[in-house]
Amino acid sequence: MLSGTFDEFKGQVLAEGFDEVLERSWPADAVLDFHTHPFAVKARVVRGEMWLTIGEETQHLRAGDDFALDRDVPHAERYGNAGTTYWVARRS
């Protein structure tokens, strides 16, 4: 079960040096092929589920699960059939 609020998450990640925090929502069954970001990411799934693929490894993430990515790491994302929402912090 998900614990904490967006404001608590935001306070935690800003204290860790992240400089932008937002909520992202994706529609049901959305797929993002391999891509990179010019920033590091720390995120928490708050609704639905998703699959995050880095290299040959895929993580199945559900509400309450956290994940992190360093900048410029190739990865792919697939979202569940009910859509997905996560809180995400970015560090440039």
Rank of each mutant, 00 (worst) to 15 (best):
M1I: 01
S3P: 01
S3L: 00
G4N: 04
T5E: 06
T5L: 03
T5R: 07
E8C: 01
F9V: 04
K10M: 04
K10Y: 04
K10H: 01
K10D: 13
G11I: 01
Q12C: 01
Q12H: 10
Q12F: 11
A15P: 00
E16K: 13
G17Y: 03
G17K: 06
F18M: 14
F18Q: 13
F18S: 09
D19T: 14
D19K: 04
D19I: 00
E20F: 09
V21K: 01
V21C: 06
L22N: 10
R24Q: 09
S25T: 10
S25Q: 08
W26I: 00
P27V: 01
A30S: 11
A30T: 02
A30G: 00
V31S: 03
F34C: 00
H35S: 07
H37Q: 01
P38N: 10
F39C: 01
F39Q: 00
A40Q: 06
V41I: 09
K42L: 14
A43W: 09
V46N: 10
M50H: 03
L52H: 08
L52W: 05
G55L: 02
E57L: 05
Q59A: 13
Q59H: 05
H60Q: 13
H60D: 06
H60G: 06
R62C: 12
R62S: 13
A63W: 04
A63Q: 02
D65N: 14
D66E: 12
F67G: 00
F67W: 11
A68I: 02
A68T: 10
L69Q: 10
D70H: 04
D70N: 10
H75S: 13
A76E: 06
R78H: 07
R78I: 02
Y79P: 00
Y79N: 04
G80A: 08
G80D: 13
G80P: 12
N81V: 02
A82I: 07
G83N: 12
T85N: 11
Y86Q: 10
W87Y: 14
W87C: 14
A89S: 15
R90Y: 15
R90W: 08
R90D: 05
S92I: 07
